[in-house]
Structures are given as C-alpha cells and as structure tokens.
Amino acid sequence: MFALATVALVGPSLTTVIAVIIVTSIPTYGRVVRTQTLTIKASEFILAEQVMGVSTFRILSRHILPNVIGPLIILASMDIPTVIALEAGLSFLGMGVKPPTPSWGSILNDGYTLIRNTPWPIIAGSIPLVLITLGFTFLGESLRDLIDPKLRKNF
C-alpha cells in the first residue's frame, strides 16, 4: 500500500521504484541485525574477547559480523524474489518501469490484455518469475551452509 501511495504521489519511474523498494525492506534487515547482535553480544566468547583487550571495532567486525551475516544473507536471498514480485506488481499496475525498459510485470500486463485470446504470454512471462524465485531461495540456503562452519559437511 505504502509502495502504491508513494509511486502514485511521485509518479512512476525506475528511480522511484527502486527507492520505494529500498525504503520498504530496510526495517526488516534492521530488526534482524539488531536481535542477532544482541544475542551474540551476551555470549561468553564476547566477554572473553573484551578481557583480552580486543577493541570494539575488532569485536564488531571479526566476531559479531560473521555471526550476523548468515541470517542476513538468507533474508536477502529470500527477499530478491519478493522484490522482483513487488516490482512486477507495480509494473503490472502500470506504476512501475515505463517502456521501453523491459520488466516482467509489464510483460505480464501485456499478457493480461491478451488473456481472452491466448494464455501463452502469461505462462511464458510467469515461468521465469517462478524459476528465479526458487533459484534465489536455494542460493540463499547454500550460501548459509557455506558461511556457517557448523553446517559445512566436509569433515
């Protein structure tokens, strides 16, 4: 709704769409980072680093960040499909990217106008959307496994 209202107010363009998407998804990331950091901050190994005289910057970059980044990457990779869908949604409603810049949403929109004649433009337009959604989800899971040594299966 927020996205629709903003675009309606400012007028559709590529920049607006990007800005709107950024503004709507940032709070989620903030929350995840905050809760993760708070949990990790309370663990004994952080206290151990402090006693050793490790600087706050080093604790943040070396010990907290690697533990926060995992959930963040999953969130991001799962968000890519959402964002694509959001853009497609906006473009479908004619509030997104303007032709001639191509967009899956506009393709679907074009297909929609032809739905009485043939379903193929809709099907062809949605297949890549479905594939890319699944693809990014799997990518996120593999990335998490790669980053977290506990989930690496090579020992």
Binding site: E44, F45, L47, A48, V51, M52, V54, K150
Partner: peptide
C-alpha cells in the same frame, strides 16, 4: 592477565579457527 572461562566451547568465537583464536592476543 588472562581468563579461562567456565564454558569451554561457548567462550570460543564460533566462526574462527583454533589457530586464529589462540593467536588473536598477539594481533590485538
């Protein structure tokens, strides 16, 4: 001064290898 902590595993930063953990004092 240095500490030996109560929780043997929980006091070691989980994303670091043992070599990095035990040489961190030198870097710091």
């Amino acid at each position: 001064i240095s500490f030996i902590w109560q929780n043997p595993t929980g006091s070691l930063s989980p994303r670091q290898r043992v070599s990095a953990l035990i040489t961190e004092p030198y870097i710091v």
